[in-house]
Amino acid sequence: MRTTAPKTTNRIVLLGASNLTVSLRRIIQCMQHHCGRPSEILAAAGHGRSYGLSSQFLGRELPGIAASELWAQLDDCRILPTYAFLTDIGNDILYGATPAQILGWVAWCIEHLQQQSAQIIVTDLPLASIESLPAWRYKLFRNLFYPYCRLSLDEVRECARAVHHGLLTLAAHQPFVLQAQHPEWIGADAIHHVYWKRDAFYQQVFRHLRASPGTAGLDGCKQSVSQRWLHRPKFAYKKVLGREKRHPQPSGLLFDGSVVSLY
């Protein structure tokens, strides 16, 4: 589906993996509660998505977020107020990436978003949940979600601490908000958000956005008729069982006229 964009009021850039994917519509609506609508939305998402490496999930392969075509489109976009959300940064630890690599990919994304004068929110790693994760549960979820990973829980914790401290340092020198993830929001796998607590979590996250006049409301994160999909977005590029597939963008359309490009 090729969609002609309506007169959008802003641009929303979303980067992440499974937490972003399962809550994409909810996150968009929560952000629009503060910044207004309709929006031009650029998203690099997908289960198991990496910030810097190609990743596979059930036979589907996607490029790393930093290597996706999102950035070329962003460079070509007209100037709009821009809001960005980065999450699921810890995935790359289980792909074997070093803390330095992970922080380099995230810093690169932040730098490019700053060139658009974006308001940026980044979720920190759920460090407390990782620290308290039992070894048996870690092995269960590691084998389920990351079958090729052989890192021990101690090694994962060491990397997570390094990435956490690196994000703190980055946030101290760059104009973005680093949002802590407290254990009450995180599920048993120490990765995914508790399903029935997502509304409360994203309300907490996006309170940092500077609200535009006349856009705030008490029910900003609740699903409403205005945010139903008219067309669900499809990936601009992916491989399925080794075969390349492409789809023109934007490919998604929300009821309020917001258009979504998915990379």
Rank of each mutant, 00 (worst) to 15 (best):
G46M: 11
A160Q: 01
L94A: 12
C35Q: 01
L151H: 09
H165Q: 15
H231Q: 07
L14E: 11
L254G: 00
E131N: 10
L253H: 05
P63F: 06
L168Y: 07
R161S: 05
T9M: 06
T169L: 11
L178E: 08
P126W: 00
K239S: 12
K239R: 15
A84L: 04
L80Y: 12
G166M: 06
D76F: 01
L178G: 11
K239G: 08
L168C: 15
E61N: 09
R142N: 13
S258F: 02
E184Y: 05
W185S: 05
I93L: 11
A180L: 04
A162N: 09
R157H: 11
Q29S: 09
L167N: 11
C109A: 14
Q115Y: 06
I65A: 10
G220K: 01
V240Y: 02
V205S: 13
A190S: 13
L42N: 13
V260G: 03
H231K: 08
A72G: 10
G252L: 02
R157S: 04
H192I: 10
V122N: 09
V13D: 02
G36N: 00
D76K: 10
A171D: 09
G16W: 10
S261L: 00
R25F: 02
T123S: 14
Q56G: 15
A107T: 10
G59M: 05
T87Y: 08
E111S: 05
S132W: 00
P183M: 06
S54P: 14
G36V: 04
K222M: 10
G90V: 04
Q227Y: 10
W105T: 04
P81S: 05
K197Y: 10
L168E: 15
E61G: 07
Q114S: 06
A171I: 09
G214Q: 01
S224G: 14
R157C: 14
P99E: 01
D124M: 03
G252T: 03
A5C: 00
A211K: 02
L167P: 07
T98K: 05
G59I: 03
S68D: 07
Y51N: 09
L168A: 13
D199H: 12
F255C: 09
C77A: 15
G16T: 12
T98N: 04
Y146E: 06
A128G: 03
H47P: 14
I65E: 12
V177R: 13
V13N: 08
N143P: 08
L127I: 12
V13Q: 02
N10P: 04
L94Y: 11
H231R: 12
R207K: 15
L127P: 08
R207S: 15
Y195Q: 15
E155N: 06
Q179S: 14
L178M: 01
C159F: 07
A67W: 00
L94G: 04
I12L: 12
T3M: 00
A118S: 10
Q32G: 05
P38T: 07
A211I: 02
S23F: 13
G96S: 08
H164K: 10
L168K: 15
G217C: 11
V106Y: 03
G52D: 07
R26A: 08
H182P: 00
Y263F: 15
A43R: 01
T3P: 03
N91F: 05
W108I: 02
L70I: 11
